[in-house]
Amino acid sequence: MAPGLLFPLQHAYPDAVVPFGELVKSGLADRLWLAQSALVETHQTIAYLAGRGIRVPCGLSVTLIPLRHPMEAAAQARSLAVLTGRPVVAGYGAATPDLVQALRGAPYDKPASAAAGYARAVRALLDGGPVEHACEACVVTTALPPMPHPPVEVGLGVLRPGMARAAGAVADVAITWMTPPHYVRDTLLPALATGAADRRRPPRVATVVHVALARPGRDPRRLARSAAAEHLRTPHYTDMLRRAGVPADPADPRAGAAALVEAGVYVYGTPEEVVEQLRGYREAGVEEIILNLAGVVGTEGFRAALTDAEQLLHAMADADG
């Protein structure tokens, strides 16, 4: 099932990421994913792991495009590929309108077009340029000095059809969060294909899935609330969930968390039950399932989350036989 493993928090101390990287290094997971961090910067954390001898495939899910120019983004991504010696997925997202305004003075008029333009520029720079590009997000009229490096895929965060169509035209990977399997299959994949009409193939899909194993004393609704409350307060996530038939209201994240559990978007159960539910993502067309144990980390800490992750990864390996 090609599982990836997400370090589920903004990381203040890189040593906390080490056990997650070691699980990937063991071969139980295929890739270590980290999200944007305003504490210890994500690229530097991965470089630190490489210096510790944890040189594994990595993914950024996602870093925010207003924070760096595409030339810097491409240089950082290929630097990770060189330092780790392994493939990298450099995933980018448009950020919230409030953050974009705080960083550049005004939100993007067309966030999907801005993100697609940015991804196109990063891809062109990684491919060797020279690049002549201008869009709402950036202007690039230069090239990176050539150097050999392991493959770098350019990803875009995708929740809704508009961004999926934009990603389909430019991205190597569409990275989705909390998107139910039927929504990926019926809504996002057709939109990606529409956007990719002039390309050889659409982007592959990597989906971040909230998971936890059933244990005495655990309440999956509490776990889901701990994991997803911030996302459940945001209009773009809750709009996506409602499109997928999951009732979610930014004004009531507690009810939204319960709805995630009821709909199976927060995947909870025995190892066998969780593996069976995750199989639905593969059947829907997801090529990489990324395990997110944020709920367990938030309620019980890293040790408990790592125990769940290792047990679940073993169960997934056994199921694939």
Rank of each mutant, 00 (worst) to 15 (best):
L32W: 07
L126Q: 08
M240R: 03
C138P: 12
V208C: 02
R233D: 08
L278W: 01
D30P: 13
P190T: 03
P190E: 09
H11Y: 00
G168R: 02
A263N: 09
L260R: 02
A305Y: 00
Y108W: 11
L156N: 10
V246G: 09
L291P: 06
L313I: 08
C138A: 13
A116F: 07
A167W: 02
V173L: 12
P253F: 05
L103R: 12
D198A: 15
R52H: 04
L28P: 12
T187S: 15
R165E: 15
A73M: 10
G321W: 01
R215Q: 14
R254L: 14
V158D: 09
L125T: 07
L125I: 05
Q36K: 10
V62Y: 04
V265D: 03
D127H: 02
H236F: 14
A81T: 03
A248F: 01
R78I: 03
V170H: 08
L293H: 06
G93P: 07
P3V: 01
V24A: 13
L67R: 05
G256V: 02
A47C: 02
G168V: 09
V40S: 14
P14F: 05
A112M: 13
P203F: 02
A206R: 04
V211E: 01
L156S: 11
L28M: 01
H69I: 07
P150Y: 02
F302L: 14
C135Q: 07
R201A: 15
P97A: 08
R160F: 06
A309G: 09
P203T: 05
A116T: 10
G256T: 06
P253Q: 06
A75R: 07
P250F: 05
C138W: 01
V56W: 05
P151A: 11
K110E: 15
Y183L: 02
R160V: 12
H69A: 13
M316N: 10
D308E: 08
H314S: 08
A29H: 09
I289W: 02
A251M: 10
A191C: 14
R225L: 13
L306A: 13
A193M: 07
A224Y: 00
G51D: 06
T45V: 11
I175S: 03
P150A: 10
V40M: 10
V246M: 08
A227G: 00
A134R: 04
L80Y: 01
G91C: 07
Q10E: 15
T142C: 15
A112S: 15
S61G: 14
L156H: 04
G195K: 08
M71D: 13
E272D: 14
G129I: 09
L99M: 14
L159W: 01
A121P: 15
A284M: 08
Q101H: 07
T84I: 08
H182D: 14
A317Y: 01
M178L: 15
P181K: 01
A75W: 05
Y108K: 02
P107L: 06
V24S: 13
E273D: 11
A284F: 09
A95K: 00
